[in-house]
Amino acid sequence: MEWLLRAITISVLVVIGLIAAAILIEAWPSFEHNGIRWFFPGGDVDQQLKAMITGPQEPARYNWHFRGWPLIWGTILTSGFAVIFALPLAILAAIFIVEIAPARVRRVVEPAVWLLAGVPSVVYGLVGLLVIVPWVEHDLISKAQKHSVDYVVQLTGENVSVATAILTVMILPIMIALIVRALQTVPRTWTEGSVALGVNRWRTIRRVSLRAARPAIIAAAVLAMGRALGESIMLSMVSGSRGFAANPLDGATFFFEPVRPLAATIIDYAEGISVAPLRHTLYAMGAVLLVSTALFSLAGWAVKQPLKRYGIGT
């Protein structure tokens, strides 16, 4: 029995290891031909990707040219801001569920969060596309704003703000769930000890409970970052589907500029995957996601280490 179970475990482990290996190997040609410039800005990404499809199909003359910065920038913008916004919201919501809500309110809020966690991303995309995007396009973006940039890009409701907002809502429940669990396991003796010192409940939560829940908060941020980086469907639907590097220097207009993160680009070009240079480029995007997810996990692990000294976390 033991060796059977161990064999199963090892084979699953091998498969999971293969995922990384296979993607990196398949990605290599794209990096090889572009070098470090793969990550640089330079020209219109969408034209470069289309040129791979329309270009010559003999291996020696493949069109490899690719400058991925707009997509990377789009990923940083959407995922980064979504996590930054979601983290404090998730902490407050988790505190609410565990420490504040009266039993009757909690019986409503808690299932609502679990339900939100189960909503498929395509539903978020649909709601975004059919409800939020038209509203933003008609009511929030002014004519002047559209006009000011229409020589480079068309402003629509599919833009960086909408994408980030929906992404924030999407990653919120999973973060809440993790933090709720951690708060629930904070020993009562700690919180009671703090209250007995005349520290009010909010300060007790902040100084003792949250402190003890820090590993979970870090884990939640890492997991949410993974989700946000990898979110492809919803983002491919609402982020504007143009490989454009939204520019913060554009002022208020920036918020309505389109972006398209890496994962969404992979989905958008799924149909061209049989074309060799495009396929390798898409796998290269996947490799970037893979490595950055792994780096975030590593960073989370590293941040958690010093906490162990004082008996927090496991």
Partner: peptide, 20 residues
């Protein structure tokens, strides 16, 4: 590995499946 899988983007699994 299981933890990474839990946080792993499904699009990566899809890309992997296609090769495999």
């Amino acid at each position: 590995a299981i933890e990474m899988t839990a946080g792993g983007p499904s699009v990566l699994f899809a890309l992997f499946g296609l090769i495999l």
